[in-house]
Design a protein around this nucleic acid. Structure first.
Length: 319
DNA sequence: AGGATTTGACCAAT
DNA sequence: ATTGGTCAAATCCT
């Protein structure tokens, strides 16, 4: 099998996986402590220590990911264009281009299944829907909103594969080459890199709902439609983003190397439950992300960090 | 009015 | 011939 990480050393991948495994182990221990009814002060101290270790694992892994263009899953391809067969589009007039397209060949994919439609942080534009043979539910086709403005080739397909309980399959194709960051409200991440594991501050706007609202003119009631990005949501975090898009600057949006404070993240909040998905800008198109869930109840704060998602993306690849 | 979604048509792959 | 992926006009929403 060819290396899953072209342009990236296997030692880096190994470090990422080890960091994730470490994090998972720390999380497991933390869960044990939390589940004990009477932990006392000792348990609190132990829990705090584990949280610190978990955050360290996050930071170390993110720094590795940030330092290189990690590609995680699928079959490597030399360029986005290589994902498509050569089309036979000869006419240049708009009207004559109808039906003229480059059909996707076997390309780099990342398949994800989940029971709910979690916003992956990218701006998608739906361009088609198709009833697939022997499938109960139609398949929905999405392309990156910035496909034409920034020539971003990323696309995805979403399909409901089960109703009760609901299960959705999302297949990602290609990488995001666009410079627009995932939708964020307002994020202040006081980096744990300074060693103070308790100094993580997450600030977000509760009014922004990143879940998928039902669209009134979506003809498929079983499939919620994607929330469209708003200009304000992007500008909140990168005030000059619009100017940069127009000037085609290539560097402005990139956070400084290894600067975790600028790592983009998305948040979902419902009731007392909040999920933060932190993405590395270099790999967010690869579907690599860390999921940190916090649940607040009265005076208690529970923190769970889900490394399973990350590890799943690395499964099947040998170092 | 501008932008996003819907949906039938078109085309390539099988 | 059939099927899946994409295009683009029509439609809808903000």
């Amino acid at each position: 099998m060819e290396s899953p990480l072209p342009g990236n050393s296997s030692s880096d991948l190994k470090m990422v996986i080890e960091g994730l495994i470490r994090g998972r182990e720390f999380t497991r221990r933390l869960k044990e402590i939390i589940n004990k009814p009477l932990g006392g002060e000792v348990a609190t101290i132990m829990a705090e220590g584990l949280v610190g270790k978990i955050m360290d694992s996050f930071s170390e892994t993110l720094s590795v990911i940030n330092s290189d263009d990690v590609r995680v899953v699928g079959t490597p391809s030399s360029s986005p264009e290589d994902n498509y067969s050569s089309g036979s589009c000869k006419s240049s007039t708009l009207k004559d281009r109808r039906g003229c397209y480059k059909r996707r060949k076997t390309s780099e994919t990342n398949i994800k299944e989940s029971s709910d439609l979690v916003d992956d942080g990218h701006a998608w534009r739906k361009y088609g829907q198709k009833q697939i043979l022997h499938a109960t539910y139609p398949r929905h086709y999405f392309r990156c909103t910035h496909k034409y403005v920034q020539k971003c080739q990323a696309s995805k397909q979403m399909q409901k594969i089960q109703d009760n309980p609901p299960l959705y399959r999302t297949t990602y194709y290609g990488h995001h080459t666009c410079r627009a960051f995932p939708r964020v409200s307002q994020i202040i991440l006081d980096s744990p890199m300074d060693g103070d594991s308790n100094s993580v501050l997450l600030s977000f706007d509760q009014n922004v709902n990143h879940n998928y609202p039902l669209n009134s003119y979506n003809n498929d009631p079983t499939f919620p439609s994607i929330k469209q990005e708003t200009k304000d949501e992007v500008l909140n975090f990168y005030p000059k983003i619009e100017d940069q898009i127009q000037s085609s600057s290539s560097d402005y949006f990139l956070p400084a190397a290894n600067d975790d404070r600028l790592t983009p993240a998305t948040f979902e909040a419902s009731g007392s439950h909040m999920t933060a998905v932190v993405l590395s800008p270099d790999v967010m198109s690869s579907g690599v992300y860390f999921s940190c869930t916090t649940t607040t109840s009265n005076d208690n704060l529970e923190i769970g960090i889900d490394f399973e998602e990350c590890l799943c993306n690395f499964e099947g690849y040998s170092l």
